[in-house]
Design a protein around this nucleic acid. Structure first.
Length: 428
RNA sequence: GAGCCUGUAGCUCAGUUGGUUAGAGCGCCAGGUUGUGGCCCUGGAGGCCGUGGGUUCAAAUCCCAUCAGGCUCCCCA
């Protein structure tokens, strides 16, 4: 297998049977927590119009300027969604979800696509879950969104995280701050990194995000946005912090926290884990009060978060958190001969209807091979069917854990297996 | 887009200063047990040593190129 004919594209990985259990556990917990918080799931297409992402996420962001999987077909321009907030906002506007009344609490789970160079915790097809509260301006919404995100990590046992928060301001605050920031950096412009020089023109806030060494000293003594917030936005941010404290959710203020997507306004936050290596953000989000207007809807304030499932899996692995129990099989029918195999095939449905998981050998292997197979499948019981059993109408039921066996009629076996509570599959 | 590292069996990895038919553990298949798994024993299958070229009497081993992967920077989930 040095060179298989086909393989996945760079940065796209198969999730194989052995690991799917972990994904199912995570997805289950997300659904359960979202339900507790009264969020409804929304599923949007994996492809959107390129223009929606360009306008929603922002033309100048890395995502739009160089990381989109986009193509044209006829006059239609398609893009594999790089994130899901813009699509959810689009669905909100397109289907007039505001007409359902109240605020819309929505969540999603699914694959996203960005054409970056893959590394640990970063794939080109990756999976996010996220939630949005659309139509609420109040700090309570910001805090409930953060609480939902934290609840999911708590459920999984990922607690050694740091929540960083900041306010990136409303447009007026942002204008004032941007001016101050430019005034601060302008005299040092030639000494800044190339990237920061570009950002100086396009989006000076992002200079704060720089990890270039030559920029650090200038960033350190740069003015902080929280000093330039309008009274209203400052009050909003203050309340968010107060409410977080009320909920005993620990947080760190980081006045340099800037998010990479253009649509964020006011509250911004990020959840950091020390277990992830270079890509240390488990999730992040914030308020995007202007996005819905930007894509053609009414002015509608909103707040949301998005988090990466792959990174969550890495964190669980680092913390030795077991996400999936071993798969077991209730019954494996071991057969000897063609008649026995037909008997087995006829009786599997009754076992399955009774809620048991049941399987058999299809290809007439030796009894030893079948027993081995049953063991490999973690079968709790085997039913052994040979000529003796068929003649007598009694079949050997073997308890694989206890290594005990006895002969019963099929009806007796069915009764015995469905009596044992822990061999019963959930029927709900 | 840039840097560093790694490509040997299904998986994890040995392979000594280049030297005969390339190894181990796990896994897989079969036998030891004429109808019984796990433990043990025995045997077997499975490798163009990522690919191409070069050096050499001789290359998994040295050189070059190329492809793939990993990690890092940038950025983000």
């Amino acid at each position: 297998m040095a060179q298989p004919t086909f393989s996945t594209h760079l940065g796209m990985v198969d999730i194989l049977p052995g690991e799917v259990g972990k994904w199912q556990t995570i997805e289950r917990i997300i659904h359960e927590e979202a339900k507790k918080f009264n969020f409804e799931e929304i599923r949007t297409p994996i492809m959107e119009q390129t223009e929606l992402i360009a306008r929603g996420v922002g033309q100048l962001t890395d995502i739009v300027s160089k990381e989109m999987f986009a193509f044209q077909r006829g006059d239609d321009r398609y893009v594999l969604r790089p994130e899901c907030t813009a699509p959810v906002a689009r669905a909100f506007v397109e289907h007039h979800l505001d007409q359902r009344g109240g605020t819309q609490n929505l969540y999603y789970i699914g694959p996203m696509f960005r054409a970056e160079k893959p590394q640990k915790g970063r794939q080109r097809q990756f999976h996010q879950f996220g939630a949005e509260i659309i139509g609420a301006d109040a700090p309570a919404a910001d805090v409930d969104i953060i609480a939902l995100m934290m609840a999911i990590y708590d459920r999984l046992g990922i607690t050694n995280t740091t929540l960083k928060i900041n306010s990136v301001g409303d447009p007026e605050s942002r204008r004032n701050y941007t001016k101050a920031l430019k005034d601060h950096f302008r005299p040092h412009l030639p000494q800044l990194s190339d990237i920061s020089q570009k950002r100086f023109k396009n989006n000076p806030l992002r200079i704060l995000d720089s990890k270039e060494e030559e920029d650090q000293s200038f960033i350190e003594d740069a003015p902080v946005i929280t000093d330039y917030l309008t009274e209203e936005t400052s009050a909003h941010y203050g309340q968010v912090k107060e409410l977080l404290a009320d909920l005993n959710i620990p947080f760190e203020e980081d006045p340099h926290l800037v998010r990479g997507l253009d649509y964020y306004t006011r509250t911004a936050f990020e959840l950091i884990s020390p277990d992830l290596g270079a890509q240390d953000a488990l999730g992040g989000g914030g308020r995007y009060d202007l996005l819905i207007e930007e894509i053609g809807g009414q002015h509608t304030p909103a707040v949301g978060f998005a988090a990466g499932i792959e990174r969550l899996l890495i964190a669980c692995e680092e913390l030795d958190i077991e996400l999936a129990e071993e798969e077991t099989l209730d019954v494996y029918i071991v057969t000897l001969g063609e008649k026995a195999r037909r008997w087995a095939l006829r009786h599997l449905p009754a076992l399955r209807s009774a809620g048991l998981s049941a399987s058999m050998d299809y290809i007439g292997r030796s009894i030893k091979a079948q027993m081995k197979d049953a063991d490999r499948e973690n079968a709790r019981h085997t039913i052994i069917v040979g000529e003796n059993e068929l003649n007598e109408g009694k079949f050997t039921l073997r308890n694989m854990k206890k290594s005990e066996e006895n002969a019963y009629t099929f009806e007796e076996i069915l009764g015995k297996l469905t009596d044992i509570p822990d061999t019963r599959q959930s029927l709900q």
